[in-house]
Design a protein around this nucleic acid. Structure first.
Lengths: 200, 200
DNA sequence: GAGGTGCTGCACTCACCGGTTTACTATTGC
DNA sequence: GCAATAGTAAACCGGTGAGTGCAGCACCTC
């Protein structure tokens, strides 16, 4: 009788394989990652990887889906807590910067930019579920602020872009190339500039 | 007697090899590029590549140096023509966006982000000679504006970051993932927001 | 025009890597 | 406890790609 897909051994294997694979892919990229090493680090036979996951490409997709899921959840949580007044944007700026500069998130960005040619669907999905969702959430909040006269943002999508990139554009861009940590206070300063530009 | 390095055959080979290699590296990245294909496209024997350039890594470095040189020259030229009044920033914004969104420049960015782990020195060099120089030029201009009371920019470095990423942050970020062309008018709108935030 | 040098084309080595096979052991569900 | 299934270890296959050696032709320098 088939132990079928509820076999705890399978679940355990899948978990440890995906964890090791995430480590490798995020560090060295898709092509340079090698299945033997992933198997060794997961302390799992290479055969198990092919039984449980299917192959290198599927493994990559699984890893991206998992990391993207948790990253998107964090980003969503950090953005949704918009309160009544635009002044809370200063705190939001710092939370957002912290999430986006988390090492895993940065590496996922690098990875997907690097493989955008090979996996355009993944790059697009990332963009929609990550930055895209943050933008639409911000935009909705700004539309609300605008309606209540708290912010002069006739084009809330544009305002959302401006907020996001004032807050973390420069440091994010730099981090993509050099691993340097963001300068402290930069996020808050960006939010302040935003308020100067968009205060009614 | 040695024909030495002034032999026109060598110069010609080097030129055609670098051109073909740039094409390949910018399109598929470092690892996926393959020397046989580059040789074929350059209509040159593979042996010639190893004689003239030395190897795949050196070829990559040559290509990056060349593309980076021309890109930096363009970016510098587009930024330096700052006139007396902050109003010219609207035009500057559009010029800057055009340069940065040029396909070659975008692909160089993707390439260097992708290989930042393997070639950290190249990534750093790019950042200093490209975005870095643009920033310092902008910053110097803003300091001047500030001194003459034309702009309220007590921290000109910060103002330069804000200007650059208001103008092209969102579209550049998107372009790294999806190849989508920037929305028209976005650059100008960014410059306008900048002026609202920094007008004295 | 003579001698040296570069280019070619091709075969070749060597290493790596994704994926499979085999022969065996350990768990699991019933 | 007993099939059935998952896992292990190691060898193996097929393909690919960086880099080399070499022999002969073409071109450049003087």
């Amino acid at each position: 009788m088939p132990a079928s897909s509820t076999d705890p051994r399978v679940a355990r294997s899948r978990a440890v394989i995906t964890a090791a694979a995430a480590e490798h892919f995020l560090r060295v990229g898709y092509l340079a990652a090698n299945v033997d090493e992933i198997a060794a680090e997961a302390r799992v036979s290479k055969r198990t990887i092919y039984n449980v996951v299917g192959g290198k490409e599927q493994l990559f997709r699984d890893v991206v889906a998992e990391v993207l899921g948790t990253a998107a959840a964090f980003a969503g949580a950090a953005t949704r807590e918009l309160a009544d007044t635009p002044e809370t944007l200063l705190d939001l700026a710092e939370r957002l910067a912290a999430v986006v500069h988390a090492p895993r998130v940065l590496r996922l960005r690098r990875l997907l930019i690097a493989e955008a040619g090979r996996f355009p669907d993944l790059a697009r999905e990332y963009y929609e579920r990550g930055p895209g969702r943050v933008m639409t959430t911000l935009s909705a909040a700004f539309r609300d602020y605008h309606g209540r006269g708290l912010l002069a943002a006739p084009d809330p999508d544009l305002a959302a872009e401006h907020f996001a990139f004032l807050v973390l554009g420069a440091s994010l861009d730099r981090a993509l190339f050099t691993d340097e940590p963001p300068q402290p206070g930069r996020a808050r300063a960006g939010a302040e500039a935003f308020l100067r530009a968009y205060r009614p």
